[in-house]
Write a protein that binds this DNA or RNA. Structure first.
Length: 359
DNA sequence: AAGGCGGGGCA
DNA sequence: TGCCCAGCCTT
């Protein structure tokens, strides 16, 4: 191993600062390593330290685990969460017994064929229990490598993940693979943390691209926000003597209790509402506005209708008792009303457009 | 309350 | 094959 390689720097750091006293690091048989890896996938080390000894005491060997009832396995797992994986654990033990009672640690592909064991976990078990050269890529390692090499793009994306696997394999040393594997996981867990990484204590500070380019905070690239569902709503801009009709919204739902434009699910609904009130005139579609909520995106489709001075008495448009409260609103003399920001913006834009027309 | 997580599962 | 989800925990 070259003395200034990624692996040698990492191993030096690990010998001095890594954890060497975890229960599964002693007597690292495939069975003991496997149980720890599955537990650690979903749980922090402190909690695993609580569960692991009890589990191993009850099921000292893979044969004991395979022979147990699923209920008993789940009982010892209770509180760790992700119970699908406890069921896989049980199924996997039985699969190993069907193979003769030994994990097929010599073969990556045979390991991956076992229930609950994928590429990274298979490699971890092989590296820790046999020292064979095998490469892991879990969340910690992804974070270390994206920063170290300055790899941009969401690591869940196929091309990025393939790049990371390639890099991970390239950096895996020929010797000391077990220690190296533990070391890179420890580095990610203790120094190269998601937030506020301890770069001054990192053995790779001089070589780290993210550190050099001040990108540690934005790498790994976060998962793209999934496109929120879109809701289209039609809003009526009913104008009368330079005022607009507002309705008080119900207390429940978005903009509860605020004053807003009459809202409709469809343009047909809007037209029916106008027809019921014998409100006629030219209905003009206005440019749509998009407004993002946390759980969906609202497409505001405004429709403007100018009422002639003679066509309406001053007062509410609807008089029935269960109808929403209504007022005429003059943006030039705004009353102390709560208006949703996008509605306020829409009204201001209308006013600006009208003033523009005057000149 | 939103994102992270290894593998499973479905298209 | 490739994409998305389950289910719990942390920030």
């Amino acid at each position: 191993m070259r003395p200034d390689s990624f692996a040698s720097r990492l191993l030096s750091w690990y010998r001095q600062h890594g954890r060497h006293d975890l229960p599964w690091q002693h007597n690292p048989t495939p069975y003991r390593v496997w149980i720890s890896e599955i537990m650690l996938q979903q749980t922090q080390v402190v909690k695993v330290l609580d569960y692991y000894p009890r589990f191993m005491a009850r099921f000292p060997t893979v044969a004991d685990l395979a022979a147990a009832s699923q209920d008993e396995v789940l009982q010892l797992w209770a509180g760790l969460g992700y119970y699908t994986r406890a069921r896989n654990l049980h199924r996997c033990a039985q699969a190993v017994m069907a193979l003769g009672g030994e994990f097929p640690v010599g073969s990556q592909s045979e390991m991956e064929a076992l229930p609950g064991i994928g590429r990274s976990t298979a490699a971890a078990i092989r590296a820790f229990s046999t020292g064979q050269r095998a490469t892991i890529l879990d969340g910690n390692v992804k974070r270390v490598l994206t920063r170290y090499a300055g790899i941009e793009g969401w690591p869940g994306q196929k091309t990025i993940e393939a790049q990371l696997w390639q890099l991970a394999e390239d950096l895996t040393p020929q010797q000391d693979v077990a220690a190296y594997t533990q070391a890179i996981m420890d580095l990610g867990a203790t120094l190269c943390k998601p937030r506020q990484p301890a770069c001054p204590r990192c053995p790779h500070q001089q070589q780290c691209v993210a550190y050099a380019t001040d990108q540690t905070a934005c790498l790994p690239t976060p998962k793209p926000k999934k496109t929120r569902p879109q809701k289209e709503r039609h809003f009526l801009l009913l104008e009368h003597q330079q005022q607009w009709l507002l309705e008080r919204r119900p207390d429940q739902g978005i903009w509860g209790g605020l004053w807003s434009l009459p809202e409709f699910a469809t343009s047909a609904g809007l037209q029916a509402w106008l027809a019921e009130r014998a409100l006629t005139g030219r209905l003009e579609a206005q440019p749509q506005i998009e407004h993002a909520f946390t759980h969906y995106q609202l497409i505001i489709r405004p429709w403007r209708l100018r009422l002639g001075a003679q066509s309406l008495i001053d007062g509410p448009v609807t008089a029935s008792s269960d109808a929403p409260a209504q007022i005429w609103y003059d943006p030039q003399q705004p009353a102390a009303l709560g208006l949703p920001a996008p509605i306020e913006k829409l009204l201001q834009a209308q006013r600006a457009a009208q003033q523009g027309q005057l000149f």
